[in-house]
């Protein structure tokens, strides 16, 4: 079965969604990401959806679930590059995804991840950062 590739960049995982996802592909991504986070002890996940032409409530829910699951596994999720038309439609649909962190593009998303991971390392007494 077709799968969406997950790239590892240091302590972060990077996913770029470039196809119109059918439901099973989205479910598979959710499983794969959860496994990879736990296997690699990643601190952050960046999902680039700039090529996605629509996000309906199903894909929205998958994104939300990924964010919550990664949180439990001690990783931050940032969704980047949502198109204006997609954002307006999601809000009209009634789905404002309050739990998901967002950024304009991959670069800004990376900055956000680094900043939040750095801050949390300090809070937890330099636990993992110094490792």
């Amino acid at each position: 079965m077709e799968r969406i590739p997950i790239l590892q960049m240091g302590e972060f995982l990077l996913v770029t969604i470039q196809v119109d996802m059918h439901d099973r592909l989205a479910m598979a991504l959710q499983d794969d990401l959860t496994n990879r986070i736990s296997k690699t002890s990643a601190r952050g996940v960046l999902i680039d959806i700039s090529s996605l032409e629509i996000v309906d409530s199903f894909i929205g829910r998958i994104l939300g679930t990924i964010a919550t699951m990664s949180q439990i596994l001690d990783a931050q999720t940032v969704v980047v590059g949502m198109q204006p038309a997609v954002a307006i439609t999601l809000v009209e649909l009634g789905l404002s995804l309050p739990k998901i962190r967002t950024a304009l593009n991959v670069e800004k998303g990376m900055e956000l991840l680094r900043a939040s991971v750095g801050r949390r390392s300090k809070e937890s007494g330099n636990g993992r950062a110094k490792r």
């Binding site: 439901d23 032409e53 629509i54 996000v55 309906d56 199903f58 198109q83 204006p84 307006i88 439609t89």
Partner: peptide
């Protein structure tokens, strides 16, 4: 318009599912 296209496709996706 692009925004209307997106709204229509999204609504269709919801109802088809």
């Amino acid at each position: 318009s692009l925004i209307d296209q997106t709204k229509i496709v999204t609504a269709a996706s919801e109802l088809a599912r």
